[in-house]
């Protein structure tokens, strides 16, 4: 099944050229919308920045993830390829994992660039890189696993573009919460603050959706 994401990756290279700028654009727009000071100020400890930067970052990631997910399933819906996948008799769990992994890879790429952008734009220092890395990874996995599951619900429908956000965003509320808190802790706080517990929440979320997705993808993929 890893094969599949390779393929999708290959195809999606085209898309990354669109989602990535989109994310950066949002990041910049956030900077514009909130306060001009934010952009100018370097590493001065502005409480507003501290409060907002991680949240903005993860919101941007969420929006980009939605686009990537939409793209991932648009690929299949395009030419009746879901039918062909079903004809191939693939293991639904494998399809689920493959899809999720592909989106994860894409998303991590987006996050790397976005994170760098956020670092430049918001000028946030990193206090605990280990925690940050773990957070990014876990949150991304969580987002893609849950997102893939829900995107499959709406796969091949005309209303997909509107339905998926409606379904996914509330579900991802804990992820947004956990990721924001954890990365805030990672960026600013002293090592005493329980940032790892948030990472733990993200891990639990990911694991849960891993299991649920693998179980539930069969009935979802199966038409009729």
């Amino acid at each position: 099944m890893t094969v599949k994401d390779l393929r999708i990756e290959l195809t999606s290279r085209v898309v990354m050229a669109q989602i990535l700028p989109f994310g950066l654009l949002i990041l910049i727009l956030f900077g514009l919308a909130i306060s001009p000071d934010l952009v100018v100020v370097g590493d001065a400890r502005r409480p507003v920045i501290e409060e907002i930067a991680p949240g903005l970052f993860w919101l941007t990631v969420l929006l980009s993830a939605l686009m990537a997910l939409g793209r991932a399933f648009a690929l299949e819906a395009d030419d009746g390829n879901l039918d062909a996948l079903r004809m191939a008799g693939l293991d639904p769990a494998g399809v689920f994992l493959g899809k999720a992994l592909a989106v994860t890879v894409q998303l991590v790429a987006v996050e790397t660039v976005l994170g760098f952008g956020a670092f430049v734009v918001f000028g946030a220092p990193v206090a605990r890189p280990g925690l940050l890395a773990a957070t990014v990874l876990l949150a991304t996995v969580g987002i893609t696993l849950a997102g893939t599951l829900y995107a499959a619900l709406a796969a091949g429908l005309r209303v997909r573009d509107t339905l998926v956000p409606l379904l996914v965003l509330p579900v991802l509320a804990p992820v947004l919460l956990g990721a924001t808190q954890a990365s805030r802790d990672a960026l600013f706080a002293d090592p005493g603050v329980p940032g790892w517990s948030w990472a733990g929440l993200l891990a639990v979320f990911s694991l849960l959706y891993l299991g649920v997705g693998m179980l539930a993808f069969g009935p979802l993929l199966e038409e009729s």
Binding site: V3, K4, R7, T11, V14, D78, G80, M87, A88, G89
Partner: peptide, 29 residues
């Protein structure tokens, strides 16, 4: 489904991949 082959109106191909990549993917699938 695994024992039948359907040539439908839809081509079941990924537009972005080359012919060979498509074939390889479906073969592996």
């Amino acid at each position: 489904r695994r024992q039948t082959g359907l040539l439908a109106h839809a081509t079941f191909l990924y537009d972005e991949l080359t012919v060979e990549e498509n074939l390889m993917f479906w073969a592996r699938a």
